[in-house]
Nucleic acid binder design. Structure first.
Length: 225
DNA sequence: GCGACAG
DNA sequence: ATCTTGTCGC
């Protein structure tokens, strides 16, 4: 069962840590001209277990070239603004199993678009020292003040652009893209656009979501039989 | 004090 | 996120 926080844990100190780590983020593009492999990361839950999944796709064809899953005990509850503390363990466990090293990872959640500048995607990027991009299905903070023109619109928060609202499929709710680490917002948006498939969720993240759920069902039946 | 609040 | 079948709408 998802245990409670240790009595020693302090939300205030966690937020202070996030603000400190956020300053280490590299918000400029460090990616090569041509990106070859893009990974998608997502987590699923069952009972007291967290299932991490990662799918690596060739950007040019959006075809999957590798996938890994890992399950660990859930040790942290879901607390808005502290999602990375809950999801990094399973995510990291699955990613370390990869044989192919992706150029960039698309993570299900916010990156810099976070009250303290360190969403799950950014925290994971710092830990891996790899380029990451946050792709969230809804907002944690900030607001869209302008009308989207070329399929996207800036996301503002306290007088700063922290991300963008991106229409990945016409007629559906947009997704929220923000820099995770080692990439610019412009490049992040470009990469997310290139990862568009037939559905709203960018293909790498959608594949990771499917993998996590497959593994979850697998664990469920082997537990009930 | 009140409402909001990624997954 | 998760519990879950059918169903409303383009």
């Amino acid at each position: 069962m998802p245990r409670k926080l240790s009595p020693k844990f302090s939300v205030k100190k966690a937020h202070a840590m996030q603000q400190r780590l956020s300053k280490k983020l590299i918000l400029e593009d460090t990616l090569p001209e041509t990106v070859e492999f893009v990974a998608g990361v997502d987590i699923a839950y069952l009972e007291g277990t967290s299932v991490g999944a990662v799918a690596v796709l060739e950007l040019a064809s959006l075809s999957q070239v590798e996938s890994q899953v890992a399950h660990v005990q859930t040790r942290f509850p879901y607390i808005p603004t502290l999602l990375s503390f809950r999801e990094i363990p399973p995510a990291y466990s699955s990613i370390r199993r990869l044989s192919i090293e992706p150029d960039v990872l698309l993570v299900d959640g916010q990156g810099y678009a976070h009250p303290h500048g360190l969403g799950f995607a950014s925290h994971l990027g710092l830990l891996l020292d790899k380029p990451t991009i946050g792709v969230a299905k809804s907002l944690l903070c900030g607001r869209i003040e302008q009308v989207g023109e070329c399929g996207w619109a800036p996301l503002n928060y306290k007088g700063e652009v922290i991300g963008a609202e991106v229409v990945t499929k016409s007629g559906t709710k947009p997704v929220y893209v923000s820099v995770g680490h080692k990439v610019s917002l412009e490049r992040a948006i470009k990469i997310v656009m290139e990862c568009r498939g037939k559905y709203r969720i960018p293909e790498p993240v959608r594949r990771a979501h499917m993998l996590a759920n497959e593994e979850k069902r697998r664990l469920n039946r082997s537990f009930s039989q």
